[in-house]
Design a binder for these strands. Structure first.
Lengths: 238, 238
DNA sequence: CTATAAATATGACATTTATCATATGAAAAT
DNA sequence: ATTTTCATATGATAAATGTCATATTTATAG
């Protein structure tokens, strides 16, 4: 009885979690969710702190319950190249877990985060016994791959200006805006530069230009998109 | 008896195939290899011809038995950005098959190719019934993802000169050289430019520079790496 | 074999972007 | 409150790269 109650409680906890609703984990059945709830651990990560660093062996995946994180890699010249931003509902560290390799990227919090850690053994177990789960997981990696390939093309074929416009639109679409219309993800100019792959000064300069052209408005360090249509046009053509 | 003989023959054909030895297909058991051999179709693709074009629904995967292919995407400005080269032993079209999406990239032969087509139904069947196969497939997509992410970083953080040096080394390492020491993959300058993401003229100019510096030698349209050490140095630092 | 087209090569120049210097404003530390 | 530090901002300049023009060579078609 005590066990039953505990399990029910645990199950509900994971069952209602946003990650369970949005990620590959949606394929898990009740029994599996209970196992999950019993094996997971929850962690709070403060803004700026790392969930894991590149080169670390993670031995499991992280579910993002709340907050925003960045996946990035440090280059030889000391710059931090952001590969991807993650928000609540997403899984982290799947790739290196499956490849049996240390993390290729670092994961750090951009806004305070709450994440759950699921040990590798659980995931492998689900993977082997639940075809829908393995298919979902596979599809999510495939989605990442497609996005990465498209990013690669954009990096090569678009100018810094176009990439900045594109990235601002993307941030707006994916993370939304605050009540004062400013973008919800608050990146420093340096981080934004790291995302589009340019020098911090170039990024700042272009933001100034966009501001003068009234495409965006700079409210202190925050950014408001004022003319989405024109930004889209800028992101597309020259 | 007739059936048995036919199956044995078919199994052997796929069983000894290089793709079977190198790709996710190595996890298949005898019975599965027989099924595979009976459902696959073999195709010859001439240099320059397409295996599939971006936007097409492929409904299966292609095994590269022989030859070299390129995965590329046409950009709005008409340039063909090469994402990846494939050689014998590799699978093609896994991503779009699993994502249930039309191909994101085009696959074309750079050297005459021989490929086998395996229908989606077979692959899904293997995926659902053979855990090792699904894990292998997953790992191969993960490997592609890691490579793509690293490429992304290189594109942003390295100069065109560095990327050219890196790409030449990579082509040498992955595809080897002919008896006259020239690189085995023979790309046009335009294709090479497409790989490193630069203008054709810039690529030609840098090849000339490398030639003058005796890092490489240009034998007509072919390329010989003369100073691998110096090329490596160039690819790394500035 | 010649004519035509395509790929390679190179110069001249324009544009984009990075780098360095320096200023200003905002946040953090003492 | 003041100093120190850090992010943002902007100008001046250099370096990298793209674009256009135009040979030259090589491949292809007739």
């Amino acid at each position: 009885m005590v066990n039953f109650a505990a399990n029910t409680f645990a199950m509900n906890k994971c069952d209602q979690c946003i990650v369970r609703q949005l990620s590959s984990l949606k394929a898990l059945n009740k029994e599996e969710v209970i196992k999950l709830a019993n094996s997971k651990t929850t962690h709070k990560i403060k803004k700026g702190e790392a969930i894991f660093e590149e080169g670390e062996v993670t031995n499991g995946v992280f579910c993002v319950k709340d907050g925003i994180g960045k996946l990035s890699k440090l280059s030889s010249n000391g710059k931090d190249q952001i590969i991807k931003l993650v928000k609540s509902g997403e899984l982290l560290g799947q790739r290196s877990m499956i490849s049996n390799e240390p993390a290729n990227l670092s994961a750090k919090a951009i806004a305070d985060m709450e994440v759950c850690f699921i040990p590798k053994s659980e995931i492998i177990n689900f993977f082997n016994n639940n075809n829908q789960f393995s298919l979902n997981l596979m599809q999510s990696v495939c989605e990442d791959l497609k996005e990465s390939e498209n990013d690669k093309i954009a990096l090569v074929q678009k100018t810094v200006k176009q990439r900045l416009a594109e990235t601002l639109l993307h941030l707006h679409e994916e993370f939304g805006e605050n009540t004062d219309k400013t973008l919800k993800v608050q990146l420093t100019r340096e981080e934004l530069a790291g995302m589009i792959g340019t020098a911090t000064e170039s990024c700042i300069r272009l933001l100034s230009d966009f501001n003068k052209l009234e495409l965006i408005e700079l409210v202190g360090k925050k950014i408001v998109l004022k003319n989405v249509k024109a930004l889209k046009k800028m992101a597309e053509q020259l």
